[in-house]
Design a protein around this nucleic acid. Structure first.
Lengths: 73, 73
DNA sequence: TCCAATTGGGGTAATTAGGGGA
DNA sequence: ACTGTCCTAATTACCCCAATTG
């Protein structure tokens, strides 16, 4: 699978969101930072981590966002 | 940058942050060394112990780093 | 459908960061 | 130089139960 491409009005191409990137569950992110999964969700609620929502309102986190935070975000 | 791993829900590993090792809280490290958590905090500030920061700026400590120090690191 | 594990949301007790001073 | 204690504000852990996941 490859990243999405978008055709602009002038005919050029631009890359879209990379849908191949793995999404991490709250539990996985929690183990990475050594905190409770509920804490990870609180980070999402307070805007400290961008989150993706499943159709049933559960949260998933982009690996690149987590990596950025680990590097001092 | 060091190779990192992520534990997926089905137990497999994939490229990402290393979660194979447990992170210890300041209180846990303090009990190990028999000191006040505040002292552990200062060890991190003065660079005596490497620390991982949560998005909320709390500190967590890698078990391997603690073991190294216990062995005279 | 059943089942075990995870997640979300609410509420409360415990822990942590940071500054200051002994 | 190093540590323990006091203080407040912020953050987190643990409890419940219902819903979702795989």
């Amino acid at each position: 699978m490859s990243p999405l491409k978008v055709v602009t009005p002038d005919g050029t191409f631009t890359t879209g969101p990379d849908t191949t990137e793995r999404l991490l569950t709250p539990g996985e992110v929690a183990r990475i930072f050594g905190v409770d999964p509920k804490t990870v969700n609180r980070w999402a609620l307070t805007g400290r981590i961008p989150s993706v929502r499943t159709p049933s309102r559960q949260r998933r986190y982009r690996e690149s966002d987590i990596r950025t935070l680990l590097n001092g975000g």
